[in-house]
Design a binder for these strands. Structure first.
Lengths: 143, 143
DNA sequence: TACACTTGAATAGCTAGCTATGCAATATTA
DNA sequence: TAATATTGCATAGCTAGCTATTCAAGTGTA
């Protein structure tokens, strides 16, 4: 039997993900944020004052991962938390001024990473590529 | 400005990579190995008795990451190390019997993950998808 | 109402990745 | 050959992800 990693989808996917992460990391570092915080910020920029559970429903990550990342974000002055008025177990998560102000630069950084990474593909190829990824993801999630 | 994560290549790539890793993890756990060890084992199954530096040249990971993973592999009885006869700083890395014996089952597990993940795509689509990933990777590496 | 069940979140403990730094052995060069 | 530079590897310390477990607060029910 043979196994050539360049012909292994999993190997390529992993490698590509690390390159994307490294590139995004590099571009958002000046903003004082890190990659794991990105999806959370994306949600909070749309709507804050939500509970951890609300966030969890929108972000594809385990609850423990989210809780840890939120702790680091609080430590770093990106969010603050207030008691939920309706449930003593829950807290509402709010962006700080600092974090709110980063939105446009962060969007831009991420859009640039994506554009640069996909620049080797033509426009229709890019669309195909995105479509393939969405298909693979939804196939894998439904197992 | 708008940012929809389902339209972000980086977001999809990251998500897909975690699904692949989780699936592979799940299938190789019975063999007593974990995902980070996989690329190293692939190389060692081809040829062992090599130095860390040799391995580093073939695996796309930082030196420190490799060193840590090798330590865990030694702890887990997958490799052993002998002094290099030519360089007192280096060691030669050898597979144990246990690790050698895992090769075929591990190949099979990985091939199955890939096949299952890509089953939502037709054969020509799969080929395109792989081609796109290789293009994106080589584009990103050459920056 | 008391007790059991469920749920929101935190914590422990692990792998895998990274950067930065240290250190001893080898190579190079003045 | 002595001083310097380079190299092979290890270590420290961080983020990001995971599973498993715990715990307190809410919910439902006998």
């Amino acid at each position: 039997m043979d196994f050539e990693k360049e012909n292994s989808a999993g190997y390529l996917v992993n490698h590509m993900a690390r390159l994307f992460a490294k590139e995004l990391q590099h571009r958002i570092a000046p903003l004082g944020i890190v990659v794991g915080q990105f999806p959370i910020l994306l949600e909070l920029w749309l709507k804050d004052g939500v509970t951890q559970k609300d966030l969890l429903g929108k972000i594809d990550v385990e609850q423990a991962t989210l809780a840890n990342t939120l702790n680091r974000m609080e430590r770093d002055g990106l969010i603050r938390r207030t008691k939920s008025p309706t449930d003593a177990r829950a807290q509402l998560i709010w962006l700080t001024e600092k974090a709110s102000g980063l939105r446009d630069s962060a969007y831009e950084a991420a859009l640039n990473v994506n554009a640069d990474a996909l620049q080797v593909l033509s426009e229709p190829e890019r669309a195909q590529f995105m479509r393939y990824m969405r298909l693979v993801i939804s196939g894998m999630r439904s197992d």
